[in-house]
Design a protein around this nucleic acid. Structure first.
Lengths: 160, 160
DNA sequence: TAATGTAGACAAGGTCGTTGTCTACATGGT
DNA sequence: ACCATGTAGACAACGACCTTGTCTACATTA
């Protein structure tokens, strides 16, 4: 390998780096009591924490945050509810809204993810150096948008 | 934004960096006569060049290279043939093999992609410095696998 | 109070992947 | 030379997940 890639190498390495981290995260999460979590779910949890109002997030909120239809977001929520990661509530100020909030089980997954990511970060720092890793993140911040959550990424690979 | 991300930031920035580059690539490719190309196709082209034998690549070859079934790979090839990016041939040494090779139109897309990526790379270098960009790629090489092509990435987001 | 907009439920359909089956051809051991 | 085994490709059924469209209940604003 590593032949006539040139300009292709930068994007490819970025994707590979991402996939490695996420794959190792989920291997470890599976060992720690979260075998059903999918790569997508981490993003969904973040979106549920951010997108909704004070009483939680609705399917419509989530759909907008993730760039998918409210129906698709609703199905994701159904699955997460089945897995025990979200639970339904309601908004006392608006009888239409069927809100969802993260359960302790979801927060457990988030905390463990945080720790696992920290461990992986340390591994990278050992390999390339703490200063270089810090520089990488800093540089990436400069060339990527700050409004972060727009995750229609799965099918995005197959768009026009 | 940029609040309680911590360990999440590294993978997130890697993904965002990847998406930015690929999105800008395809915007520009669309302007340059390739509006039907999808993010996935670049990987498929690479795989078609690498995976097959001297007479071209079969659907089964492509499926193995991409980590999908031969049927799925076959459908992708059908689409690419419809778009004029691959054309069928045959392997004189094996009558079963229905091979495909890239057309000049596909090579045109690859050359333009190369140029566009170079331009984007230059933009990044202006923002963060040529040396820092070089360091980033170098460092990513150290922490990512060298056998690069395994692109079942789309649905990968939604695996167990 | 009436017009307009949004949440959620339900249904139909599309895209793209999967597995399973069948036939034609290749290959390697006997 | 022959036969068992394996693989390529065509065809079909099916499943996961997304979409659009429609309908009703509730909110909001003129």
């Amino acid at each position: 390998m590593s032949n006539d890639l040139q300009g292709f190498e930068l994007p490819l390495r970025l994707l590979l780096g991402f996939r490695m981290l996420i794959d190792e995260l989920h291997e470890e999460l599976a060992r720690q009591g979260h075998p059903e979590m999918r790569p997508m779910h981490g993003f969904v949890f973040q979106a549920i924490m951010r997108a909704g109002g004070p009483y939680g997030t609705t399917a419509a909120d989530l759909g907008r945050a993730l760039g998918v239809s409210k129906q698709a977001a609703g199905k994701t929520i159904d699955m997460l509810e089945g897995l025990g990661y979200v639970r339904p509530g309601h908004d006392p100020g608006d009888a239409r809204r069927k809100t969802y909030t993260l359960t302790p089980h979801a927060y457990d997954a988030l905390e463990r993810s945080e720790q696992i990511f920290d461990g992986l970060r340390d591994q990278w720092a050992e390999t390339i150096g703490e200063d270089r890793l810090r520089a990488m993140v800093e540089d990436l911040r400069k060339v990527t948008p700050s409004d972060v959550f727009r995750l229609d990424t799965p099918q995005w690979f197959n768009t026009p």
